[in-house]
Design a protein around this nucleic acid. Structure first.
Length: 489
RNA sequence: CGGGGCGUAGCGCAGUCCGGUUAGCGCACCUGGUUUGGGACCAGGGGGUCGCAGGUUCGAAUCCUGCCGCCCCGACCA
């Protein structure tokens, strides 16, 4: 058992780290808090990126690229935003090194080469982008601006975990400018829907759609819409946010336009992003003690064909025929040509990597005109006639995609509890975890107290919540609707 | 930044308390052979600044001092 991973029950964090490492998604790097995304992990990200990118394009957005560095004076212009990120910024102060006269072969920062103005490595790009938009926008005819960028950002976190929280990460950030408040709100809600669709249809990860309380809101936003997913350990994970920024950045950067009555108005803004964190979400939603489990729509390889016992000419020929037929249906297939490992080893490896469907093809199969089809999600195996294996696999991939989603929905509903008193709240949070659906009096004082006493936070106020008379689970004050509490990543 | 653990071959570890020939083991790797429908076996082989720097000593992986890094648990956060 060369690649044993820690069981989820034994140590969930260790299990997660084992998956990341042993499925070949990422490695730790020589840089504190930064990871190397390995080819397999990056292929997964590329699939997510390409799908999101096409969804952004379909909704009228275009891509652009803005600088990595933000001059400090621009960064601090929108006060709340600057304050929100101030504690986790990397700052460039010098532009040159020189030989250290006291230590041969060593370099030192050249004190002569201090920058006149420090550069902040972007933790997000609102500042540099809105400073640019000022020059791009004069009239209502210049609006809307619907731009997205794929980029890296840096947030100097105290404690990091691969994909979930790293000092540098990859993401997309959309930044849009609009003539009216309504249009900007509609934009942020529309992206919220795009994220929901992506999470549920592609990642097979059900999410709660809602908006953030004031204390959880993005610094500089008037409203933050969020999708919240539930991980297998009962903790919630914020998977994507879309912000209605009001006129905060327009005012901070003096971005105005002339409306059709020739009056000057401030521009309305949105911003929205999802990051490589989604890979962490994917891992913790579907994977098991055998390794990674990937939804077919995002899996870099959807089907692997393993010749048994090893790839001889006859088996390879048949395997290639099947692969060609599957590829013709748009299915991503790999034929295993490795002669040095035995089938059992390969099975375990491909399970570790989360490949949705494995086809085992041996001489016995050729005699019987069959092939062994193994699905990763349930680990079931069955023998299928070679005559209809292509249809079978195509259907099976869809079935796996559906099953993963339904399984996650079931898990979430089993781990969502309506709670009406604080004793149960604490009890259930500690024993079962998951989402607690409770009445809340709407004050940040109550929110803070609950967080202090239980570590649970309000993940979101659901958008589709029915009105319902009730009493706050903590203060007993009247409340009109329930909100989602959980411990969060 | 606090509390705990750790750093010895690519990976996982033993050896460190109590200093003493040539630093071991499993996996992986290389060569040859036998195997092959769920992580093969036999034989042979290669691979180490024992985290870094200084110190004590005839002699340091082992003792002392300083530093660096990693992991887990907290505080902070997407």
């Amino acid at each position: 058992m060369a690649k044993e991973i820690t069981g989820r029950d034994e140590n969930y964090s260790q299990w997660y780290n084992d998956i990341v490492k042993k499925a070949g998604l990422a490695d730790n790097s020589a840089v504190r808090g930064c990871m190397v995304i390995k080819p397999y992990g990056y292929a997964l990200w590329e699939n997510m990126r390409d799908q999101l990118d096409s969804m952004f394009k379909e909704t009228g957005h275009v891509n652009a690229y803005f600088p990595l560095f933000v001059p400090k004076s621009l960064f601090e212009a929108e006060e709340k935003n600057a304050e929100g990120f101030a504690k986790e910024c990397a700052i460039v102060t010098h532009y040159r090194l020189k030989n250290d006269p006291s230590q041969k072969g060593r370099l030192m920062v050249d004190p002569e080469a201090k920058l006149e103005e420090e550069l902040i490595v972007r933790p997000t790009s609102e500042a540099i982008i809105w400073n640019t938009y000022r020059d791009w926008i004069q009239s209502y005819r210049d609006l809307p601006i619907l731009i997205n960028q794929w980029a890296n950002v840096v947030r100097w976190e105290m404690r990091t975990r691969p994909f979930l929280r790293t000092a540098e990460f990859l993401w997309q950030e959309g930044h849009t400018a609009h003539a009216t408040r309504d249009e900007a709100i509609r934009e942020s809600l529309m992206i919220h829907d795009v994220y929901t669709k992506f999470a549920e249809e592609y990642m097979a990860m059900p999410v709660i759609k809602g908006y953030k309380t004031e204390s959880e809101r993005f610094a500089g936003a008037d409203e933050t819409y969020t999708i919240e997913a539930l991980m297998q350990d009962g903790k919630a994970l914020q998977a994507g946010t879309s912000h209605f920024l009001g006129q905060n950045f327009a005012k901070a950067f003096n971005v105005t336009f002339s409306n059709d009555k020739n009056e000057n108005e401030y521009v309305w803004a949105t911003s929205w992003g999802v990051s490589t964190r989604l890979i962490g979400a994917l891992i913790m939603t579907h994977s098991d003690d055998e390794g990674l489990v990937l939804p077919p729509k995002l899996a870099p390889t959807q089907v692997v064909i393993v010749p048994i016992p090893k790839p001889d000419a006859v088996l390879l020929d048949k395997a290639n025929q099947i692969a060609t037929a599957l590829k013709a249906r748009g299915i991503r297939v790999l034929v295993d040509k490795d002669e040095t490992k035995r089938p059992g080893f390969k099975f375990a490896e491909y399970e570790m990597k989360g490949i949705p469907v494995r086809l085992g093809l041996g001489n016995r199969d050729l005699e019987n005109n069959t092939i062994e089809v193994a699905r990763r999600d349930t680990k079931e195996k069955q023998s299928v006639s070679l005559d209809n294996v292509i249809d079978h696999v195509e259907n099976l991939l869809a079935e796996i995609q559906k099953n993963l989603f339904e399984r996650s929905v079931k898990f979430r509903s089993e781990h969502t509890t309506r709670v009406d008193n604080f004793y149960d709240f604490k009890e259930i949070l500690e024993t079962k975890g998951g989402f607690l659906l409770c009445h809340w009096d709407g004050t940040s004082e109550t929110e803070d107290k609950i967080k202090e006493e239980t570590k649970a936070t309000i993940r979101c106020i659901p958008l589709d919540a029915p009105e319902e008379e009730g009493k706050c689970v903590y203060s007993g004050k009247p409340s009109k609707r329930r909100v989602f509490f959980a411990k969060a990543y």
